[in-house]
């Protein structure tokens, strides 16, 4: 099968869905000729024109609210918000408006809205351009939170998200963007709410989100050389979470390490740990461990940044201490 990058898989999913359904539109800053901050909309305006690819002013509250209004009128907007940090600017429209509108309308009119955010560390992004704020949205009933890690997953989950009738925050970890992998050319759907076991193992389960999936897989490879068999589970969707797959894995291995780019306190790892303590308690042979960023804003200098970012070594150290 042909291999394409995560970034290319995103573009392909959007283009295929726009061809399939005339109600799918793209909105966001610089999404026209410029191609968006993430360069994932390059060329799309040429095929679909400026009534399907709507360039917005720097006006996040305004255009997120307008996208909800258009969604309630039957459109299926894909919003490019750019950096995940920018979602905070539009928090009222995301949390108070988008997340509540299906409840308000009681199933009559629906909000099909995908809010794409570029998340996590990038060299020298600094405190306001490096955040992984998925936990904040995970706390909101009415939202779905998706975070694919591979090119295959991002195409299938973005397609599923565009077809979904609920507002979705779609996290695209920056570190995943250059990654390449096998992606079918035809459209396909990965159901929202299904985790993927990226590597099977028997001694420990590493539950890794987004960009940490790749580091977990590399760590698992090294652990295998030392005779430690690590299973790597990628939830892919954070809300709803595939509790069944995660719990089954930990019941099998008896050990759980959870890792995400976001800082640990209040992170999604805490929620997963609570579920495991509840549903896999009698299978546990060791305490549940969490690995995330330091409890600091993310500094800009590369030397400082690397000290607060979780890495492969952190995973190796924690797993080896557990075994």
């Amino acid at each position: 099968m042909r291999e394409i990058s995560y970034k290319e898989a995103i573009t392909e999913a959007m283009v295929q869905e726009m061809r399939r359904d005339p109600k799918v539109i793209i909105m966001g800053e610089d999404v026209g000729d410029f191609g968006g901050l993430t360069e994932t909309t390059i060329g799309i305006i040429d095929e679909f024109g400026d009534q399907r690819v709507l360039e917005t002013p720097i006006s996040e509250c305004g255009f997120v609210g307008a996208a909800v209004g258009a969604a309630l009128a039957g459109y299926r907007p894909i919003l490019e918000l750019g950096l995940a940090d920018v979602s905070f600017v539009a928090m009222d429209q995301i949390v108070n408006t988008a997340a509540k509108m299906n409840y308000f309308n009681d199933g009559e009119a629906t909000v099909s809205l995908v809010i794409r955010v570029w998340s996590g560390f990038r060299r020298s992004g600094g405190p306001q351009q490096s955040q992984s704020n998925e936990a904040m949205f995970n706390h909101v009933p009415g939202l779905k939170v998706v975070m694919p890690s591979t090119p295959y997953d991002v195409k299938g989950l973005l397609t599923a998200s565009i077809r979904d009738n609920n507002p979705i925050i779609f996290f695209e970890p920056k570190a995943s963007y250059p990654r390449e992998g096998e992606v079918p050319e035809d459209e396909y759907v990965i159901p929202i709410g299904e985790a993927d076991v990226k590597r099977e193992g028997t001694d420990v389960t590493i539950i890794a989100l987004g960009a940490m999936v790749h580091l977990a897989l590399e760590a698992a490879e090294k652990l295998a050389r030392d005779g430690v068999s690590a299973e790597v589970v990628d939830p892919r969707t954070i809300r709803p979470l595939d509790v069944q797959t995660i719990v089954a894995s930990v019941r099998k291995t008896g050990r759980a390490v959870i890792t995400h780019e976001a800082n640990v306190i209040g992170g999604v790892g805490g929620e997963i740990a609570a579920i495991l303590a509840d549903q896999a308690f009698t299978s546990l042979k060791a305490p549940i461990k969490r690995i995330g960023g330091e409890e600091t804003p993310i500094p800009v200098s590369p030397s400082l940044e690397s000290t607060v970012v979780p890495g492969e070594d952190d995973i190796l150290d924690v797993v080896q201490a557990l075994i």
Partner: peptide, 21 residues
């Protein structure tokens, strides 16, 4: 049209309906 409790937040929402029109 369905509104919200946040004073003023309905204004972009209304613009969105007009955009759909």
């Amino acid at each position: 049209l369905t509104g919200t409790s946040m004073v003023g937040s309905v204004i972009p929402l209304a613009s969105g309906k007009a955009l759909a029109n």
